[in-house]
Design a binder for these strands. Structure first.
Lengths: 126, 126
DNA sequence: TTGCACTAGATGCAGATGCATGGAATGTTC
DNA sequence: GAACATTCCATGCATCTGCATCTAGTGCAA
């Protein structure tokens, strides 16, 4: 793989990322008042096997700094989509858990999310 | 391509984008005081066939809003890496052109950029 | 128990981004 | 040429992000 190949691959990735992310952000925001990052967190919470996750567990899944994630969870909590609760086993930790409203909004938004992705990956499947 | 496939592909893309971008940003900032977006603009300016580009031409290449690009160019100008000048053919437009300092810094930073990309794409070439 | 290093998460702050808007120049229509 | 719509870039503003730091809780060692 030459230098140029790598650069081209990177630009291709940048392009796909930017257009998809931007579209997701616009659609989710407009219809459900959700940012793309926020949906990403809801997605992990909803699909998970557990019904509550530690903040640091979520941090390992989404690509945000610890501070950004903390505030994002704060926003979700303000919107009533998740609740924070103290972690029993380690009282420094915070458990994050979807509320019913959160589960509902997620279920409503999920088709939009998937359909944007499908459209975005349709023209040049990875 | 199933729904799950698409989601997985998207997450793979997110992951690669985040780690690569983050690494680029850190390395370029630390060594050359450049943000990843800023390098991206310098890259387009330096490799281009023309020696000056309209702001809107750059806008079509990098994935930034028009306002973000305008400010980014402002930062580059403050650092003395580019100059803005009125466009002759259309006096609404602005031509952006690398300075010698800009060309030098770009040449210095380019190997770092390429090497980060190479490392990032080495483990799973697209 | 006390002391100290370490970890989890929250927050002050500065910087970057996007949206909406503004001013200036251009093009269009009559 | 006058009036109006449109395009180009800059900027006010709110929001999101990361870095550095802070507080609270944990674990270990003497």
């Amino acid at each position: 793989m030459t230098d140029t190949d790598v650069v081209n691959a990177w630009r291709e990735l940048l392009s796909r990322h930017a257009s998809t992310w931007c579209e997701l952000d616009r659609e989710l925001n407009e219809r459900y008042g959700l940012g793309a990052s926020e949906f990403e967190v809801l997605d992990r919470l909803a699909e998970g096997v557990k019904d509550a996750y530690r903040v640091q567990e979520l941090g390992a899944m989404v690509f945000l700094s610890q501070s950004a994630l903390s505030r994002l969870i704060g926003r979700l909590e303000t919107k009533g989509l998740v609740v924070r609760s103290m972690c029993d086993s380690d009282r420094r930790g915070i458990s994050v858990c979807l509320t019913d409203a959160g589960r509902e909004l997620y279920a409503a938004a999920k088709p939009t999310h998937r359909s944007v992705l499908a459209a975005s990956f349709a023209d040049a499947p990875a």
